[in-house]
């Protein structure tokens, strides 16, 4: 871990309005210039953590002892301040680019416009920058792709465009929420490689939210495992197979593997004690 982390979160708790209990409880972690995976089953609170960091939960009660992004106190910052931070210094990339791109505008124009929202530039400069970014995410013929509409690009291409858009402003923190879950495995690897290279080259702190243990094992440095709103275990990704918590071990065992025994898969036996606080030291 670096001397001064990019992000320092202590006891983040999120309670949606009308929900009987908090959806995220006492989540603590620090993030340096590294790739941190957050993994767990659907409903465990992964996306809620990401949205809380981006301050995208207006109707939820968000509390924390500390939620500091560089010099920005994410708990206390005004919405005006957040508008300058969000999409510029911290960015989020979501599972399905179809929902993030405007269907009736050309992909390239959307990238160029995103640039002009944050950086003073002429239209021609923004266009040149957009084409350079499409090139940086290894889109062949970026000039041609610039003019395509979102429905004319494949899922993998759409996700590259989203990555290009996100990296325009050289953010320090990127939160990727299931960025490749909708992609074929061959395309998934290419997109992950591009994201990975850019994150490393630019020294970005990456939070990779995923339900997929294989993904966080191979593309993250550290992993938080979430269950029912809490972090039950934190591990170096390389040590995932040495996980101690029965939930983590249960998830790993339930995963079919190529060349596996074909015996019935071990089924997760849930224990009520997993939802109790236990102060995982991070």
């Amino acid at each position: 871990m670096n001397q001064s982390p990019i992000l320092d979160v202590q006891n983040l708790t999120v309670h949606y309005g009308g929900a009987p209990a908090p959806s995220v409880q006492d989540v603590s972690f620090q993030l340096g210039r590294e790739r941190l995976g957050i993994v767990g089953e659907s409903g465990s609170g992964k996306s809620t953590v990401g949205r809380a960091l981006m301050r995208l939960l207006p109707s939820a009660r968000v509390t924390a002892d500390r939620m500091q992004f560089e010099d920005v106190d994410l708990l206390g910052a005004s919405e005006r301040k957040m508008l300058a931070v969000r999409g510029a210094r911290m960015s989020m990339i979501l599972q399905d680019p179809k929902f993030s791109l405007n269907p009736i505008r050309r992909c390239g124009d959307q990238v160029a416009e995103a640039y002009r929202t944050h950086v003073r530039a002429s239209k021609a400069e923004a266009r040149a920058k957009a084409i350079a970014m499409l090139d940086a995410v290894q889109i062949r013929e970026p000039e041609r792709v610039y003019d395509l509409y979102p429905h004319e690009v494949s899922g993998g291409m759409g996700q590259r465009i989203m990555i290009a858009m996100m990296l325009l402003t050289s953010p320090d923190l990127v939160i990727a929420d299931e960025p490749t879950s909708a992609l074929d495995v061959t395309v998934r690897l290419q997109v992950l490689k591009i994201l990975d290279d850019l994150v490393r080259e630019q020294g970005i702190g990456l939070i990779m939210i995923s339900h997929d243990l294989n993904l966080v094992r191979n593309f993250c440095d550290r992993v938080l495992i979430m269950y029912a709103g809490r972090v039950v275990e934190a591990l170096n990704a390389a040590d995932l197979d040495k996980a101690q918590h029965p939930y983590t071990r249960g998830l790993l065992a339930a995963q079919p593997r190529i060349g596996g025994s074909r015996q019935p898969l071990p089924v997760l036996a849930r224990d009520p004690s997993w939802t109790q606080p236990q102060g995982a030291a991070l």
Partner: peptide, 28 residues
């Protein structure tokens, strides 16, 4: 989820053993 997937795959395997089903199965 993978934990639930395991239950359903086990179920499908058991049913094939018990009932002799022929399966044509799409997966990514």
């Amino acid at each position: 989820d993978v934990s639930v997937q395991a239950e359903i795959l086990n179920l499908l395997q058991r049913l094939r053993d018990e009932k002799g089903f022929t399966y044509l199965m799409v997966s990514h």
